[in-house]
């Protein structure tokens, strides 16, 4: 017993180093698996507060470009609104809760990163604004990511520019779907894998979300095909996609809640159990 204590006292720096190093390794490995990083995230009172106050200053420098993006979106929505052929008649029931599967909330980005291989964004809305894990996040131009951790006033988002992110996406003109991943190289391009060889893939085709994951509704724009090649087994395409979104310049985003998600997951669970 004496010897054990002596050993610990003699090697206390090395043992402390070993302990702290393994703690940090554990934290690191937790971030590699999806939805495990519970402790170490910036959606807390201190870091969220710091980023919030800095963002209040920083957004003034960005006002012009963000206004341009918003006015572009308004323009697009107006042109859709006033060009619809079948006008609604007067017996239209004006009820927001009717036939709405997806609920939208606006939020702004407090912290954005795109230079590391696991990029995470911080939003200024948390569970007090009824934002929860696994909600989708989009901007006016396209897809941004999925909510990971939430605190009372802040939420972190796993960006599409994160090597652990996997989102279901498909070709716009046919229903061939695959998985959207990121190889960690350029913030302007992501990769779409598992598109079968039979699909008619052309450079310049549009990629949209498939709506299969029940996080994003179907048809949110992702990007266009930059180039493609067959994978090693020559059964599936590996497609390079140029994102519509400029992930390096995001300020205003929309958080999407799928109201039916519990029903869908319960149904899927019960069918796979049988």
């Amino acid at each position: 017993m004496q010897q054990i204590i002596n050993f610990i006292i003699r090697n206390k720096t090395f043992l402390l180093f070993l302990l702290l190093f393994s703690i940090s390794l554990t934290f690191t490995i937790q971030t590699h698996s999806y939805h495990k990083s519970k402790f170490i995230n910036s959606a807390n009172f201190l870091t969220g507060g710091v980023y919030n106050s800095i963002s209040n200053i920083n957004r003034y420098f960005d006002l012009k470009s963000q206004n341009d993006i918003l006015i572009e979106e308004n323009n697009k929505l107006k042109s859709i609104l006033y060009n619809t052929k079948n006008k609604k008649d007067s017996s239209y029931i004006d009820d927001l809760s009717l036939n709405h599967t997806y609920k939208f909330t606006t939020a702004s980005v407090l912290k954005n990163s795109y230079s590391s291989s696991k990029n995470v964004l911080l939003l200024n809305k948390g569970f007090s604004d009824s934002i929860k894990e696994d909600f989708g996040v989009i901007s006016s131009k396209g897809i941004v990511g999925i909510i990971d951790n939430t605190s009372r006033h802040y939420a972190t988002v796993i960006s599409v520019l994160n090597t652990t992110s996997k989102i279901s996406a498909q070709l716009k003109k046919t229903n061939h779907f695959g998985t959207l991943i990121w190889n960690g190289i350029s913030p302007y391009f992501t990769q779409l894998t598992d598109i079968p060889k039979i699909a008619p893939v052309k450079v310049g085709d549009t990629i949209i979300t498939s709506g299969r994951s029940s996080i994003f509704p179907k048809g949110i724009p992702v990007g266009i095909i930059q180039d493609f090649k067959l994978d090693v087994a020559e059964n599936y395409y590996e497609i390079n996609i140029k994102l519509f979104n400029d992930m390096t310049n995001i300020e205003h985003v929309y958080v999407i809640e799928n109201i039916d998600i519990n029903e869908i997951t319960n149904l899927l669970k019960s069918s796979t159990n049988e």
């Binding site: 390794l25 690191t28 170490i40 696991k118």
Partner: peptide, 20 residues
Amino acid sequence: IDIFTDSGGIHAAACVSIAY
């Protein structure tokens, strides 16, 4: 730094190593 940048424990691991 890790908490601020949402990077798990990579900065902590690197710092502990150079400190040792």
